[in-house]
Design a protein around this nucleic acid. Structure first.
Lengths: 206, 206
DNA sequence: AGCAATATATTACATTTGTCATGCAAAGTG
DNA sequence: CACTTTGCATGACAAATGTAATATATTGCT
Protein backbone atom coordinates (compact mmCIF):
# COMPACT_ATOMS: atom_id res chain seq x y z
CA UNK A 1 0.00 0.00 0.00
CA UNK A 2 1.59 3.25 -1.17
CA UNK A 3 0.64 6.35 0.74
CA UNK A 4 1.28 10.04 0.23
CA UNK A 5 1.20 12.06 3.45
CA UNK A 6 0.28 15.74 3.41
CA UNK A 7 0.35 18.13 6.35
CA UNK A 8 1.69 21.62 6.64
CA UNK A 9 3.19 20.70 9.96
CA UNK A 10 6.38 18.85 9.10
CA UNK A 11 6.57 17.28 12.51
CA UNK A 12 3.21 15.65 11.98
CA UNK A 13 4.24 14.49 8.54
CA UNK A 14 7.28 12.84 10.02
CA UNK A 15 5.36 11.24 12.88
CA UNK A 16 2.72 9.87 10.60
CA UNK A 17 5.35 8.56 8.27
CA UNK A 18 6.97 6.76 11.16
CA UNK A 19 3.72 5.25 12.31
CA UNK A 20 2.82 4.10 8.83
CA UNK A 21 6.19 2.61 8.06
CA UNK A 22 6.15 0.57 11.21
CA UNK A 23 3.91 -1.62 9.07
CA UNK A 24 5.93 -3.31 6.43
CA UNK A 25 3.13 -3.47 3.87
CA UNK A 26 2.79 0.29 3.93
CA UNK A 27 5.12 2.54 2.05
CA UNK A 28 5.12 6.32 2.37
CA UNK A 29 5.99 7.42 -1.14
CA UNK A 30 6.36 11.02 -0.14
CA UNK A 31 5.27 13.84 2.12
CA UNK A 32 3.98 17.23 1.09
CA UNK A 33 3.44 20.38 3.12
CA UNK A 34 0.91 22.20 1.03
CA UNK A 35 -2.06 21.56 -1.15
CA UNK A 36 -0.10 22.61 -4.19
CA UNK A 37 2.69 20.23 -3.44
CA UNK A 38 0.17 17.49 -2.74
CA UNK A 39 -1.17 17.80 -6.26
CA UNK A 40 2.30 17.67 -7.76
CA UNK A 41 3.37 14.68 -5.78
CA UNK A 42 0.11 12.90 -6.42
CA UNK A 43 0.66 13.21 -10.15
CA UNK A 44 4.20 12.03 -9.77
CA UNK A 45 3.65 9.03 -7.53
CA UNK A 46 0.02 7.98 -8.03
CA UNK A 47 -0.18 6.63 -4.49
CA UNK A 48 -2.92 4.22 -3.47
CA UNK A 49 -4.03 6.59 -0.77
CA UNK A 50 -3.59 10.26 -0.07
CA UNK A 51 -3.58 10.91 3.67
CA UNK A 52 -4.06 14.64 4.06
CA UNK A 53 -4.73 17.41 6.54
CA UNK A 54 -7.46 19.89 5.73
CA UNK A 55 -6.33 23.19 7.16
CA UNK A 56 -3.17 24.22 5.41
CA UNK A 57 -1.59 27.52 4.59
CA UNK A 58 -2.16 28.26 0.97
CA UNK A 59 -4.45 25.70 -0.50
CA UNK A 60 -6.69 23.71 1.80
CA UNK A 61 -6.66 19.97 1.70
CA UNK A 62 -10.21 20.02 0.43
CA UNK A 63 -9.31 22.20 -2.48
CA UNK A 64 -6.32 20.06 -3.33
CA UNK A 65 -8.45 16.95 -3.01
CA UNK A 66 -11.07 18.37 -5.30
CA UNK A 67 -8.44 19.09 -7.92
CA UNK A 68 -6.95 15.67 -7.70
CA UNK A 69 -10.29 13.90 -7.82
CA UNK A 70 -11.27 15.83 -10.91
CA UNK A 71 -8.38 14.29 -12.75
CA UNK A 72 -7.94 10.97 -10.98
CA UNK A 73 -11.48 9.86 -10.33
CA UNK A 74 -10.49 6.82 -8.38
CA UNK A 75 -8.07 8.60 -6.11
CA UNK A 76 -8.58 7.66 -2.48
CA UNK A 77 -8.29 10.55 -0.11
CA UNK A 78 -8.39 10.08 3.63
CA UNK A 79 -8.55 13.29 5.59
CA UNK A 80 -6.74 13.31 8.87
CA UNK A 81 -7.47 16.51 10.65
CA UNK A 82 -8.02 18.17 13.99
CA UNK A 83 -11.51 19.56 13.71
CA UNK A 84 -14.89 18.15 12.85
CA UNK A 85 -16.19 21.31 11.27
CA UNK A 86 -19.57 21.02 9.58
CA UNK A 87 -18.45 22.81 6.48
CA UNK A 88 -15.45 20.57 6.14
CA UNK A 89 -17.48 17.44 6.58
CA UNK A 90 -19.99 18.44 3.96
CA UNK A 91 -17.30 19.43 1.55
CA UNK A 92 -15.41 16.21 2.13
CA UNK A 93 -18.49 14.18 1.33
CA UNK A 94 -19.18 16.29 -1.70
CA UNK A 95 -15.83 15.89 -3.32
CA UNK A 96 -15.98 12.17 -2.65
CA UNK A 97 -13.30 11.69 -0.04
CA UNK A 98 -12.80 8.16 1.19
CA UNK A 99 -12.74 9.16 4.80
CA UNK A 100 -12.39 11.76 7.46
CA UNK A 101 -10.79 10.88 10.74
CA UNK A 102 -9.51 12.94 13.60
CA UNK A 103 -5.90 13.23 14.61
CA UNK A 104 -6.72 12.52 18.20
CA UNK A 105 -7.75 9.02 17.12
CA UNK A 106 -4.27 8.37 15.80
CA UNK A 107 -4.46 4.68 16.65
CA UNK A 108 -7.21 4.47 14.06
CA UNK A 109 -5.04 5.58 11.21
CA UNK A 110 -3.71 2.19 10.21
CA UNK A 111 -6.98 0.22 10.30
CA UNK A 112 -8.71 3.10 8.54
CA UNK A 113 -6.10 3.11 5.83
CA UNK A 114 -6.60 -0.59 5.32
CA UNK A 115 -10.34 -0.22 5.04
CA UNK A 116 -9.94 2.61 2.56
CA UNK A 117 -7.40 0.61 0.61
CA UNK A 118 -10.02 -2.00 -0.17
CA UNK A 119 -12.54 0.62 -1.14
CA UNK A 120 -14.53 1.30 1.98
CA UNK A 121 -15.16 4.73 3.42
CA UNK A 122 -14.15 5.44 6.98
CA UNK A 123 -15.23 8.13 9.39
CA UNK A 124 -14.60 8.87 13.01
CA UNK A 125 -17.20 9.10 15.76
CA UNK A 126 -17.22 12.88 15.84
CA UNK A 127 -17.84 13.05 12.15
CA UNK A 128 -20.62 10.53 11.92
CA UNK A 129 -22.45 11.89 14.92
CA UNK A 130 -22.85 15.17 13.09
CA UNK A 131 -24.32 13.77 9.96
CA UNK A 132 -27.91 13.35 11.07
CA UNK A 133 -28.19 17.03 11.83
CA UNK A 134 -26.91 17.80 8.35
CA UNK A 135 -29.36 15.57 6.59
CA UNK A 136 -32.75 16.54 5.28
CA UNK A 137 -34.23 13.82 7.32
CA UNK A 138 -37.67 15.20 6.83
CA UNK A 139 -39.43 12.01 7.72
CA UNK A 140 -42.27 12.71 5.41
CA UNK A 141 -45.22 12.40 7.65
CA UNK A 142 -47.88 10.59 5.78
CA UNK A 143 -50.73 13.02 5.85
CA UNK A 144 -53.40 10.46 5.16
CA UNK A 145 -52.13 8.58 8.16
CA UNK A 146 -52.72 11.62 10.31
CA UNK A 147 -56.33 11.76 9.24
CA UNK A 148 -55.93 14.50 6.68
CA UNK A 149 -58.38 14.06 3.81
CA UNK A 150 -58.27 15.33 0.24
CA UNK A 151 -60.03 18.61 0.80
CA UNK A 152 -57.88 19.34 3.79
CA UNK A 153 -54.84 18.56 1.72
CA UNK A 154 -55.95 21.03 -0.91
CA UNK A 155 -56.35 23.68 1.69
CA UNK A 156 -52.96 22.99 3.17
CA UNK A 157 -51.38 23.44 -0.24
CA UNK A 158 -53.12 26.74 -0.72
CA UNK A 159 -52.12 27.99 2.70
CA UNK A 160 -48.58 26.99 1.78
CA UNK A 161 -48.84 29.17 -1.30
CA UNK A 162 -49.59 32.09 0.94
CA UNK A 163 -53.26 32.52 0.13
CA UNK A 164 -55.57 33.99 2.75
CA UNK A 165 -58.90 32.53 3.72
CA UNK A 166 -60.87 34.61 1.26
CA UNK A 167 -58.70 33.56 -1.65
CA UNK A 168 -58.86 29.95 -0.65
CA UNK A 169 -62.61 30.09 -0.34
CA UNK A 170 -62.86 31.51 -3.85
CA UNK A 171 -60.57 28.89 -5.30
CA UNK A 172 -62.47 26.06 -3.70
CA UNK A 173 -65.97 27.51 -3.95
CA UNK A 174 -66.48 27.45 -0.23
CA UNK A 175 -67.46 30.18 2.15
CA UNK A 176 -64.69 31.90 4.01
CA UNK A 177 -66.08 30.64 7.29
CA UNK A 178 -65.90 27.09 6.07
CA UNK A 179 -62.30 27.53 5.10
CA UNK A 180 -61.62 28.85 8.56
CA UNK A 181 -63.31 25.84 10.05
CA UNK A 182 -61.26 23.51 7.89
CA UNK A 183 -58.05 25.17 8.85
CA UNK A 184 -59.04 25.09 12.46
CA UNK A 185 -59.51 21.34 12.18
CA UNK A 186 -56.25 20.85 10.34
CA UNK A 187 -54.34 22.78 12.97
CA UNK A 188 -55.86 20.64 15.65
CA UNK A 189 -55.00 17.42 13.85
CA UNK A 190 -51.44 18.43 13.22
CA UNK A 191 -51.02 20.04 16.60
CA UNK A 192 -50.08 23.41 15.15
CA UNK A 193 -51.07 26.87 16.24
CA UNK A 194 -51.64 28.97 13.13
CA UNK A 195 -51.48 29.03 9.36
CA UNK A 196 -47.87 30.12 9.34
CA UNK A 197 -46.86 27.03 11.27
CA UNK A 198 -48.97 25.08 8.83
CA UNK A 199 -47.03 26.50 5.90
CA UNK A 200 -43.79 25.68 7.67
CA UNK A 201 -45.01 22.18 8.31
CA UNK A 202 -45.90 21.82 4.66
CA UNK A 203 -42.45 22.74 3.46
CA UNK A 204 -40.67 20.65 6.01
CA UNK A 205 -42.72 17.60 5.17
CA UNK A 206 -42.90 17.95 1.43
CA UNK B 1 -13.60 -9.81 18.67
CA UNK B 2 -17.00 -11.25 19.45
CA UNK B 3 -19.64 -10.85 16.76
CA UNK B 4 -23.36 -11.50 16.62
CA UNK B 5 -24.66 -12.17 13.10
CA UNK B 6 -28.24 -11.40 12.18
CA UNK B 7 -29.95 -12.16 8.88
CA UNK B 8 -33.32 -13.68 8.16
CA UNK B 9 -31.70 -15.78 5.48
CA UNK B 10 -30.10 -18.65 7.33
CA UNK B 11 -27.83 -19.49 4.46
CA UNK B 12 -26.33 -16.03 4.61
CA UNK B 13 -25.95 -16.30 8.35
CA UNK B 14 -24.03 -19.49 7.91
CA UNK B 15 -21.84 -18.13 5.11
CA UNK B 16 -20.99 -15.03 7.02
CA UNK B 17 -20.22 -17.08 10.09
CA UNK B 18 -17.84 -19.18 8.01
CA UNK B 19 -16.12 -16.16 6.58
CA UNK B 20 -15.73 -14.52 9.95
CA UNK B 21 -14.45 -17.59 11.69
CA UNK B 22 -11.78 -18.13 9.11
CA UNK B 23 -10.10 -15.39 11.15
CA UNK B 24 -9.01 -16.75 14.44
CA UNK B 25 -9.41 -13.48 16.32
CA UNK B 26 -13.07 -13.33 15.42
CA UNK B 27 -15.68 -15.34 17.25
CA UNK B 28 -19.29 -15.56 16.14
CA UNK B 29 -21.12 -15.73 19.45
CA UNK B 30 -24.42 -16.44 17.84
CA UNK B 31 -26.68 -15.98 14.85
CA UNK B 32 -30.22 -14.63 14.84
CA UNK B 33 -32.85 -14.62 12.12
CA UNK B 34 -35.08 -11.80 13.24
CA UNK B 35 -34.90 -8.41 14.86
CA UNK B 36 -36.59 -9.77 17.93
CA UNK B 37 -34.09 -12.54 18.29
CA UNK B 38 -31.26 -10.11 17.68
CA UNK B 39 -32.31 -8.10 20.70
CA UNK B 40 -32.54 -11.18 22.89
CA UNK B 41 -29.17 -12.52 21.83
CA UNK B 42 -27.57 -9.13 22.14
CA UNK B 43 -28.67 -8.93 25.75
CA UNK B 44 -27.45 -12.42 26.36
CA UNK B 45 -24.03 -12.22 24.73
CA UNK B 46 -23.13 -8.52 24.67
CA UNK B 47 -21.04 -8.99 21.53
CA UNK B 48 -18.46 -6.43 20.50
CA UNK B 49 -20.19 -5.96 17.20
CA UNK B 50 -23.62 -6.69 15.86
CA UNK B 51 -23.45 -7.48 12.14
CA UNK B 52 -27.01 -7.25 10.91
CA UNK B 53 -29.18 -7.20 7.82
CA UNK B 54 -31.77 -4.46 7.51
CA UNK B 55 -34.69 -5.99 5.70
CA UNK B 56 -36.11 -8.77 7.77
CA UNK B 57 -39.52 -10.27 8.18
CA UNK B 58 -41.02 -9.01 11.38
CA UNK B 59 -38.81 -6.37 12.88
CA UNK B 60 -36.36 -4.56 10.63
CA UNK B 61 -32.73 -4.45 11.54
CA UNK B 62 -33.02 -0.72 11.99
CA UNK B 63 -35.78 -1.07 14.51
CA UNK B 64 -33.90 -3.75 16.38
CA UNK B 65 -30.77 -1.60 16.29
CA UNK B 66 -32.65 1.36 17.64
CA UNK B 67 -33.91 -0.70 20.53
CA UNK B 68 -30.52 -2.07 21.34
CA UNK B 69 -28.81 1.30 21.13
CA UNK B 70 -31.35 2.80 23.47
CA UNK B 71 -30.25 0.40 26.15
CA UNK B 72 -26.65 -0.26 25.25
CA UNK B 73 -25.43 3.12 24.13
CA UNK B 74 -22.01 1.89 23.11
CA UNK B 75 -23.26 -1.01 21.05
CA UNK B 76 -21.57 -1.20 17.69
CA UNK B 77 -23.88 -2.09 14.88
CA UNK B 78 -22.64 -2.73 11.38
CA UNK B 79 -25.35 -3.11 8.80
CA UNK B 80 -24.68 -5.55 6.01
CA UNK B 81 -27.42 -5.32 3.48
CA UNK B 82 -28.33 -5.53 -0.15
CA UNK B 83 -29.74 -2.10 -0.88
CA UNK B 84 -28.53 1.43 -0.43
CA UNK B 85 -31.94 2.90 0.15
CA UNK B 86 -32.01 6.56 1.15
CA UNK B 87 -34.41 6.01 3.98
CA UNK B 88 -32.30 3.22 5.36
CA UNK B 89 -29.14 5.26 5.18
CA UNK B 90 -30.67 8.20 6.95
CA UNK B 91 -32.16 6.03 9.62
CA UNK B 92 -28.90 4.19 10.12
CA UNK B 93 -27.08 7.46 10.67
CA UNK B 94 -29.76 8.65 13.00
CA UNK B 95 -29.75 5.73 15.31
CA UNK B 96 -25.97 5.87 15.41
CA UNK B 97 -24.96 2.74 13.56
CA UNK B 98 -21.25 2.14 13.21
CA UNK B 99 -21.45 1.31 9.57
CA UNK B 100 -23.44 0.33 6.54
CA UNK B 101 -21.90 -1.87 3.92
CA UNK B 102 -23.29 -3.78 1.01
CA UNK B 103 -23.37 -7.52 0.73
CA UNK B 104 -21.91 -7.41 -2.73
CA UNK B 105 -18.72 -6.05 -1.19
CA UNK B 106 -18.38 -9.17 0.92
CA UNK B 107 -14.61 -9.03 0.85
CA UNK B 108 -14.93 -5.80 2.81
CA UNK B 109 -16.62 -7.39 5.75
CA UNK B 110 -13.54 -8.35 7.70
CA UNK B 111 -11.60 -5.09 7.34
CA UNK B 112 -14.77 -3.15 8.06
CA UNK B 113 -15.36 -5.15 11.18
CA UNK B 114 -11.86 -4.41 12.35
CA UNK B 115 -12.27 -0.70 11.76
CA UNK B 116 -15.55 -0.71 13.62
CA UNK B 117 -14.01 -2.71 16.41
CA UNK B 118 -11.62 0.11 17.17
CA UNK B 119 -14.36 2.69 17.04
CA UNK B 120 -14.36 3.96 13.48
CA UNK B 121 -17.42 4.16 11.28
CA UNK B 122 -17.38 2.42 7.94
CA UNK B 123 -19.48 2.88 4.86
CA UNK B 124 -19.45 1.49 1.36
CA UNK B 125 -19.10 3.45 -1.85
CA UNK B 126 -22.76 3.33 -2.72
CA UNK B 127 -23.68 4.67 0.67
CA UNK B 128 -21.27 7.55 0.82
CA UNK B 129 -21.96 8.68 -2.70
CA UNK B 130 -25.53 9.32 -1.71
CA UNK B 131 -24.83 11.48 1.25
CA UNK B 132 -24.15 14.80 -0.48
CA UNK B 133 -27.60 14.77 -2.00
CA UNK B 134 -29.08 14.21 1.40
CA UNK B 135 -27.30 17.10 3.02
CA UNK B 136 -28.79 20.56 3.50
CA UNK B 137 -26.14 22.53 1.79
CA UNK B 138 -27.96 25.70 2.71
CA UNK B 139 -26.76 28.06 0.09
CA UNK B 140 -27.66 31.19 1.88
CA UNK B 141 -29.50 33.41 -0.51
CA UNK B 142 -28.30 36.94 -0.38
CA UNK B 143 -31.16 38.87 1.05
CA UNK B 144 -28.98 41.92 1.51
CA UNK B 145 -29.47 42.56 -2.18
CA UNK B 146 -33.11 43.10 -1.43
CA UNK B 147 -32.32 45.56 1.32
CA UNK B 148 -32.84 43.12 4.16
CA UNK B 149 -30.49 43.72 7.06
CA UNK B 150 -29.27 41.35 9.76
CA UNK B 151 -31.98 41.96 12.28
CA UNK B 152 -34.63 41.63 9.65
CA UNK B 153 -33.01 38.41 8.54
CA UNK B 154 -33.19 37.07 12.06
CA UNK B 155 -36.84 37.90 12.24
CA UNK B 156 -37.55 36.26 8.92
CA UNK B 157 -35.94 33.05 10.14
CA UNK B 158 -38.04 33.08 13.26
CA UNK B 159 -41.22 33.70 11.33
CA UNK B 160 -40.22 30.77 9.15
CA UNK B 161 -39.98 28.62 12.25
CA UNK B 162 -43.57 29.43 12.99
CA UNK B 163 -43.04 31.74 15.94
CA UNK B 164 -45.59 34.46 16.65
CA UNK B 165 -44.72 38.06 17.39
CA UNK B 166 -44.60 37.61 21.12
CA UNK B 167 -42.20 34.70 20.89
CA UNK B 168 -39.99 36.55 18.47
CA UNK B 169 -39.93 39.60 20.70
CA UNK B 170 -38.84 37.45 23.63
CA UNK B 171 -36.12 35.76 21.63
CA UNK B 172 -34.72 39.03 20.36
CA UNK B 173 -35.36 41.14 23.46
CA UNK B 174 -37.57 43.55 21.60
CA UNK B 175 -41.09 44.69 22.32
CA UNK B 176 -43.86 42.95 20.48
CA UNK B 177 -44.75 46.21 18.77
CA UNK B 178 -41.25 46.58 17.44
CA UNK B 179 -41.36 43.12 16.01
CA UNK B 180 -44.61 44.01 14.31
CA UNK B 181 -43.00 47.09 12.88
CA UNK B 182 -40.06 45.10 11.60
CA UNK B 183 -42.29 42.57 9.98
CA UNK B 184 -44.37 45.28 8.45
CA UNK B 185 -41.23 46.71 6.90
CA UNK B 186 -40.03 43.35 5.69
CA UNK B 187 -43.36 42.63 4.04
CA UNK B 188 -43.19 45.93 2.26
CA UNK B 189 -39.66 45.38 1.04
CA UNK B 190 -40.39 41.90 -0.24
CA UNK B 191 -43.79 42.86 -1.57
CA UNK B 192 -45.59 40.28 0.50
CA UNK B 193 -48.84 40.49 2.36
CA UNK B 194 -48.50 38.59 5.61
CA UNK B 195 -46.23 36.41 7.69
CA UNK B 196 -47.42 33.24 6.06
CA UNK B 197 -46.32 34.50 2.68
CA UNK B 198 -43.07 35.47 4.32
CA UNK B 199 -42.56 31.93 5.58
CA UNK B 200 -43.36 30.62 2.11
CA UNK B 201 -40.89 33.05 0.61
CA UNK B 202 -38.27 31.89 3.06
CA UNK B 203 -38.63 28.25 2.14
CA UNK B 204 -38.76 28.89 -1.57
CA UNK B 205 -35.62 31.02 -1.50
CA UNK B 206 -33.41 28.91 0.65
C1' DA C 1 -22.96 71.94 18.88
C1' DG C 2 -26.44 70.91 15.49
C1' DC C 3 -28.65 67.62 12.57
C1' DA C 4 -29.87 63.52 10.25
C1' DA C 5 -30.21 58.64 10.59
C1' DT C 6 -31.13 54.57 13.29
C1' DA C 7 -33.13 51.52 16.55
C1' DT C 8 -36.65 50.88 19.57
C1' DA C 9 -41.12 51.81 21.68
C1' DT C 10 -45.95 53.18 22.17
C1' DT C 11 -50.55 53.80 20.84
C1' DA C 12 -54.59 53.42 18.20
C1' DC C 13 -57.01 51.13 14.74
C1' DA C 14 -58.68 47.96 11.02
C1' DT C 15 -58.30 43.49 9.41
C1' DT C 16 -57.39 38.71 9.58
C1' DT C 17 -57.37 34.71 11.91
C1' DG C 18 -58.81 30.87 14.85
C1' DT C 19 -62.45 28.89 17.87
C1' DC C 20 -66.87 27.51 19.06
C1' DA C 21 -71.63 26.66 19.08
C1' DT C 22 -75.03 25.86 16.12
C1' DG C 23 -77.91 25.09 11.81
C1' DC C 24 -79.18 22.53 7.89
C1' DA C 25 -79.49 19.60 3.95
C1' DA C 26 -77.81 15.59 1.36
C1' DA C 27 -76.15 11.03 1.60
C1' DG C 28 -75.63 6.61 4.01
C1' DT C 29 -77.09 3.12 7.13
C1' DG C 30 -79.71 0.56 10.42
C1' DC D 1 -88.60 5.01 7.92
C1' DA D 2 -85.71 7.18 11.56
C1' DC D 3 -80.93 7.70 12.47
C1' DT D 4 -76.28 9.16 11.96
C1' DT D 5 -72.71 11.01 9.36
C1' DT D 6 -70.84 14.27 6.34
C1' DG D 7 -70.16 18.64 4.16
C1' DC D 8 -70.90 23.23 4.27
C1' DA D 9 -72.48 27.42 6.38
C1' DT D 10 -73.32 31.20 9.81
C1' DG D 11 -72.54 34.40 13.59
C1' DA D 12 -70.23 35.83 17.59
C1' DC D 13 -66.07 36.58 19.70
C1' DA D 14 -61.20 36.88 21.28
C1' DA D 15 -56.70 36.93 19.84
C1' DA D 16 -53.15 37.89 16.57
C1' DT D 17 -51.70 40.53 12.95
C1' DG D 18 -50.49 44.53 9.99
C1' DT D 19 -50.42 49.61 9.44
C1' DA D 20 -49.55 54.17 10.61
C1' DA D 21 -48.37 58.04 13.26
C1' DT D 22 -45.54 59.54 16.74
C1' DA D 23 -41.91 59.58 20.47
C1' DT D 24 -37.28 58.99 22.37
C1' DA D 25 -32.61 57.89 22.92
C1' DT D 26 -28.37 56.85 20.63
C1' DT D 27 -25.25 57.18 17.11
C1' DG D 28 -22.77 59.28 13.53
C1' DC D 29 -21.58 63.08 10.66
C1' DT D 30 -20.29 67.96 9.61
Amino acid sequence: MRVLVVDDDKLICASVKLILESNKDIEVVGTANSGQQAIELYKKFKPDILLMDIRMDKMSGLEAGENILKVYKDAKILYLTTFADDEYIIKAFKIGAHGYILKQDFECIIPSLRAVYIGQYVFGQDIVSKIPALINSEEKKNLSKLGINDKESDIISLVAEGLNNKEISEKLFLSEGTVRNYISGILEKLDLRDRTQLAVFYFKNK
